[in-house]
Design a protein around this nucleic acid. Structure first.
Lengths: 210, 210
DNA sequence: ACGACATTATACGCGCTGTCAAATGAATTT
DNA sequence: AAATTCATTTGACAGCGCGTATAATGTCGT
């Protein structure tokens, strides 16, 4: 009975490696096949693992997808936030933010589409995604608090953050891009739109020299 | 063998009545219960009908949801378009359009959420929805062509319609409303935002008294 | 009464999620 | 080397939802 001390060194490494293989497989299934054919069975097969392992590691389908979204957005987007805060003015900061998000949405478009779709029918995942979107909103609030001293936004100040957050979510990028264009192609357009909402002179977007 | 003449008068009426009962039941199931618990079984039970009848009438789950969307948006939104074109200026026209859409989205929020979710995983329904969205875009183009003579929009003219169309879709209303507020509460905010995009003086929105 | 047609009743096959119990195997400690 | 811990595997099962097939029932039209 008395449990023994047990320090898994190499053991934990193998487990973590397995986790990453599974997450990679999940990403590929979402990227290659269409949304409907995403299943834990397909992921497990592609990862060379049993379906039970997925439950051991992630608990459920929603858990797996939630963690997949986490790793992607952490690696490709939020880790680059410091460069946003390093900008000179708030216009440049949002330009940078839009660039990062646009590239992230573009690189992971198929995955994001699937994720949104599944979240639409899976309350658990919907909740998981909501808490993650929180981070984007917090980022926006941070930019405004730090750099948005004298703004004259075109919407009520109390709605400014919500408006920007909505414009910057994947659904908006994807809708503006349409079925053909990549979300990253929306970036210049989105920058103008956001400068407009912030009340910055749009003509000022000659960020070239000055 | 030789098929006989057969004129279903009263017969067809009964069938149509059945269809409406089924569509009404589908709407209620989507409105009352959560998304995940929508099933053809639940709809059939609520309509007092067998699941087979649904397949006879609508062919499939996607067919049923597509027709449901049709009847709702035709009755609650598009049938009211004439009042939009009756407005004096383009600002008032979009105010009216936003009002109609906001009310429609609010009245049918749960239904729209489910519909979007299912469309995310069902290519058939996705295509059916796309053609419906076409009508909204056409409405926007009509308003601009008819009333938007001297505009100075805050986005590129070539992107104006796309931008407005994106702002006016359900996803945007729903996202701005958040989990608690009704989409109809977003209407005033959305009106300001759209006036801003159109390049109209936002201060002019003193449509109340003042 | 007879034909046409919608609806019912019933029963499948299929795929997916989630759970359970017992066995396997590798890393770690004694 | 032997014992222990723990993830993984194996195999099976229950539940649910969609879609299909077939024969029976009912109802309207001629």
């Amino acid at each position: 009975m008395t449990p023994r001390p047990y320090n898994p060194h190499q053991r934990q490494q193998a487990v973590d490696a397995g986790r990453e293989r599974v997450l990679g497989a999940a990403r590929e299934v979402l990227r290659l096949d269409d949304v409907a054919s995403f299943s834990l069975d397909a992921v497990a097969k592609r990862a060379g693992v049993t379906r039970m392992t997925l439950y051991n590691q992630f608990g459920s389908r929603a858990g797996l997808l939630g963690e997949l979204f986490d790793t992607l957005i952490e690696r490709d987007a939020f880790s680059k936030m410091p460069s946003v805060f390093a900008q000179k003015d708030i216009g440049a900061a949002f330009d940078a933010f839009v660039g990062i998000l646009g590239k992230f949405y573009s690189d992971n478009r198929a995955v994001m589409i699937s994720l949104s779709g599944v979240a639409g029918t899976d309350p658990d995942l919907a909740e998981a995604m909501r808490s993650r979107h929180e981070r984007r909103r917090i980022g926006i609030e941070g930019i405004i608090r730090k750099m948005g001293t004298k703004l004259a936004p075109s919407v009520a100040a109390s709605e400014l953050v919500t408006t920007l957050d909505t414009l910057l979510n994947f659904a908006t990028f994807n809708a503006i891009a349409g079925p053909d264009r990549a979300p990253s192609a929306v970036v210049p357009h989105m920058r103008r739109l956001i400068r407009g909402v912030l009340g910055l002179s749009v003509a000022k977007s000659r960020t070239r020299k000055r």
